[in-house]
Structure formats: C-alpha cells, structure tokens
C-alpha cells in the first residue's frame, strides 16, 4: 500500500521534502495525521499480540523499543519489507547469541550488530542508497 496508492506516494513525498510536497497540493498536515493514526494502530495490534504470549507490564514496550529501532534500521528505513526482514534478523540474533555471550548482554549484541551494519551498508538490507545522504 505504501508503494502503490496515492496516499503512499503522498507520504513518501512529505517524508522527502515537506515544503515541496505542500507546493504540489498535498495536504501535509493531514498526511502526517493519517501516518500517525495508521502507525499507532499497527503498534496497538502488535501490543495486543505481544501481550498474548509475554506477561503484560508497564515497561514491556520500553524494553523492546531499541530493538525495534535496530530492526527498522537494519532492514532499511523507508521500506516495509525491510522492517520485517530486520525484525526477523534481530529476533533470531538476540535469542541465538546467548549461545556465545552471557544472556544479560543479548540485547547489547543486537545493538552492536546494528552499528556494524551501519558501517558497511548504511541503507540497511533492503533500503535504497539515495536516502541516506
């Protein structure tokens, strides 16, 4: 949807250059509002799903927040499929890395991978190179 609809196109235009988007007749404020609503709704669903299999607590979101950043950046900012791929990589890495490093450092391991990926391929696994500059 992000790639093919008018709304998706308008969203990418706003992300790239808000004033230029406004000049071409896109209602920047309403795009931003729609994006927040959609993103909030998706995050809400993910909260429900997470609550189904881990114990719900007030800081459950905060404990995975940085891993989410890592996943999105790893997959490539600005690509929905990249975020999914990045999330799988981070999830597998966090759990598998406990075979080698102490388990209280497993999140640190994932974040170090994030920094290493930015060093060699800053656009992420599926991202486009023109966005990063």
């Amino acid at each position: 949807m992000h790639c093919s609809t008018r709304l998706g196109k308008a969203t990418r235009a706003v992300a790239d250059n808000p004033s230029l988007a406004a000049a071409t007749g896109i209602d920047v404020e309403s795009i931003i509002r729609i994006v927040w609503v959609v993103a909030g709704a998706l995050t809400g669903i993910s909260g429900v799903m997470l609550g189904l299999f881990v114990q719900a607590s007030w800081d459950m979101g905060f404990s995975i927040l940085l891993l989410l950043f890592a996943a999105v950046t790893l997959g490539g900012l600005g690509t929905a499929f990249g975020a999914a791929v990045g999330a799988m990589v981070v999830g597998l890495f966090v759990e598998l890395s406990t075979l080698v490093i102490p388990s209280d450092l497993k999140f640190a391991g994932a974040l170090i991978v994030l920094i290493l990926v930015l060093l060699v391929r800053p656009q992420g696994i599926l991202g486009k190179a023109q966005r990063i500059g």
Binding site: L66, F69, T73, L118, I132
Partner: peptide, 27 residues
C-alpha cells in the same frame, strides 16, 4: 559510521550505544 549519514542515524546509534554501554557495565 554515522556523521556522514542523515541525522536520524546518529540519533539511533547514540541511543543504541548508550544502552549497550549500560548493559556492559551492569552485566
């Protein structure tokens, strides 16, 4: 790695490395 990239990359890497450091000193 980050200062050549867009500013949001620095934001992500700084917050991530702050957490790495905290995990390392409390392990």
């Amino acid at each position: 790695p980050t200062l050549r990239l867009r500013s949001d990359y620095l934001a992500i890497v700084t917050i991530a490395s702050a957490e790495i450091l905290r995990y390392i000193v409390s392990t």
